[in-house]
Amino acid sequence: MQLYGQSIESRLLIGTALYPSPAVMEQALKTSGAEIVTVSLRREAGGGKAGDAFWRIVSALGAKILPNTAGCRTVSDAVTTAQMARELFGTPWIKLEVIGDDETLQPDVVGLVEAATILVRDGFQVFPYCTEDLTVVGRLIDAGCEVVMPWASPIGSAKGIINPYGLKTLRARFPDVILIVDAGLGAPSHAAEALEMGFDAVLLNTAIAKAEDPVRMAAAFKLAVEAGRTAYEAGLMPARDFASPSTPVVGTPFWHAAS
């Protein structure tokens, strides 16, 4: 797939947070085969080297960096954080989050469109984290987003796709836009479902990082994403309400027409 002109093979994007240790994170990221990893920016205290230590591990992976504006609640905070990320990481890519509600971490879609508009004009290549609202996604595309990232369900909830109708509608209405399902996926089957529906990729973090064995779960998600995409390309049969025998009826032993 092409993300802002960059050719990416892996349809699994993963986050770098919540792993039990840096070593497990490193191994999980490698095992996942992900070519894109998300990172954040946080305040560093004087004398602190937490950022340096973390960055040494992540940069050694050679993955493309997708910085986020996680936690930002205003357009102004999100825009400045994006500009700081560009300065620090030297990338125009930004996973744009403008959070509107503390309990659900639901995006503030009004602020999101406003921030995306400002950042696209400033030369950013924006990956907006949004809800599955059709009109909002349309506005983000109008603002210049070539990639849009609707949620499956709230961040870290592991509920999977709670509104398949909404996501299917998005896919059908915007067939040529890169759509990445971001947030709420809890199991590899959820990721496979998103890919089977025709979504271009998935972005997740907690489902791998909080698994009992994050490295093996990274392997499971890698397989699920490949399976889902292959299934989509192979073309799934349509579902129906009643049975249809798979074994031929003609020649059934002892069968005779009712008289």
């Binding site: 986050g15 770098t16 947070a17 919540l18 792993y19 994170m25 998300t38 990172v39 954040s40 920016l41 946080r42 305040r43 560093e44 602190g48 937490a50 950022g51 340096d52 973390f54 960055w55 992540v58 910085p67 986020n68 996680a70 400045t80 500009q83 700081m84 300065e87 620090l88 990481f89 961040i155 997740l204 973090n205 907690t206």
Partner: peptide, 27 residues
């Protein structure tokens, strides 16, 4: 944002709000 090349140039003033950030884990 204060670019690294401007770290010696931009003057700070009383009451300025300064943010100093580094990379950190993120999803």
């Amino acid at each position: 944002v204060v670019k690294r090349a401007q770290w010696d140039e931009i003057e700070l003033h009383d009451g300025d709000r300064v943010e100093i950030l580094t990379p950190r884990q993120g999803g």
